[in-house]
């Protein structure tokens, strides 16, 4: 059966290397046994190309230069368009990174093709790709195919093992691309609190809910104590910190809150959908708009005072009906030893 050729579109990171998500997409493309081209964008891409030189690609196409060092719509769209036209492959696979998500739907339009984002799996039926992706914020999963080409498919990270072949020397075909952006990228701003709390690669996701700021058994809130418990736990486990919407919204309402949380920590319907292998929810009720954000968290446990919370209704593997303040204090103590 004749397989449609694939262009794997990758960009380098700030350090010039390829992200794990990029290698995952390469693995997904190579596994299809179709002819593969690799297209690279970045300031200097030879080291990245050499890293994947052994993947069996027909061509290594590149758009290189200072103006392509940083993510920016005008330059990235021009680069991706040039790579796609030079390759001519009817299928274009790319990681669903913030950089490619910003531009590739627009690039697909320029190419007269179509794009699907947040794709979680890829298979072939009669040689044609069939993708799965979620609708209504992870509430239902659809399998679909498209006749239009080129078809740009942005794959979520964590769905494939990263490609791990031997490095070599790739023969780069550099494409001349010019763009006249009206935007200057100034850099990256880390979380305002100075606390790096979002760690996509951590083994554990710890979610704090609004309960941490509510009145406790003595009729008073204990926000300072909550902060201390959570920060120590983060420090000891190096886990990633998530939050419910209610908790991050409280700061907008001027209530006492956990100072290191922002909307970026929010998990759920209008927040993120992290992919940690384990998740521990504390003082969070487990309502559906929150739990849809847990779709890709494999093992789930929750600590809640309420035996009838959402987690208890088939949404977590284990629910501990207990006071999270007491449990976390003891847990920190155990982790110290």
């Amino acid at each position: 059966m004749k397989m449609e050729p694939v262009l794997v579109l990758l960009h380098t990171e700030a350090d010039g290397a390829l992200a794990k998500a990029a290698l995952e997409v390469l693995a997904a493309a190579v596994a299809g046994r179709a002819p593969v081209d690799v297209g690279l964008v970045g300031s200097v891409v030879q080291p990245a190309a050499d890293r994947v030189a052994g993947c069996g690609a027909r061509r290594f196409l590149a758009v290189e230069g200072e103006e392509f060092a940083q993510p920016r719509y005008a330059t990235d769209a021009a680069a991706a368009e040039a790579l796609a036209r030079a390759s001519g492959a009817p299928l274009i696979f790319a990681p669903a990174s913030s950089r490619w998500m910003r531009v590739l739907p627009g690039v697909a339009h320029r190419l007269g093709g179509c794009a699907d984002t947040h794709v979680t799996s890829l298979s072939r039926q009669d040689g044609k790709p069939v993708i799965t992706r979620w609708y209504y914020r992870q509430r239902m999963e659809a399998a679909l195919e498209r006749a239009a080409r080129p078809w740009v498919i942005l794959l979520e990270s964590g769905c494939y093992e990263a490609w791990s072949g031997a490095p070599g020397t790739a023969r780069l075909e550099r494409l001349p691309v010019t763009a006249a952006p009206r935007t200057r990228v100034e850099g990256v701003q880390a979380p305002q609190s100075g606390q790096q709390t979002i760690r996509p690669d951590a083994a554990l996701l710890f979610v704090a809910g609004a309960g941490w700021t509510k009145n406790q058994a003595d009729g008073k809130p204990h926000v300072a104590e909550a902060e201390k418990l959570i920060l120590e736990f983060l420090d000891r486990t190096q886990c990633s910190l998530g939050s419910s919407k209610s908790l991050v919204d409280l700061s907008g309402e001027g209530q006492a809150v956990l100072g290191f949380l922002s909307h970026l920590n929010q998990v759920g319907q209008t927040g993120s959908t992290p992919r940690h292998p384990k998740g521990l929810a504390t003082c969070c009720h487990g309502e559906e708009p929150h739990v849809v954000g847990w779709r890709f968290v494999t093992e789930r446990r929750a600590v809640n005072l309420d035996a009838n919370c959402g987690w208890a209704r088939g949404k977590a593997d284990v629910v501990y009906v207990a006071d999270a303040f007491a449990v976390m204090a003891k847990l920190n103590e155990l982790l110290r030893s």
């Binding site: 239902m140 659809a142 009906v321």
Partner: peptide, 17 residues
């Protein structure tokens, strides 16, 4: 062209401690 749309098998056997 949709091959199908389905709800996830999301019900877990929750152990309540």
């Amino acid at each position: 062209q949709f091959h199908g749309v389905a709800l996830p098998k999301q019900q877990r056997q929750t152990r309540i401690v």
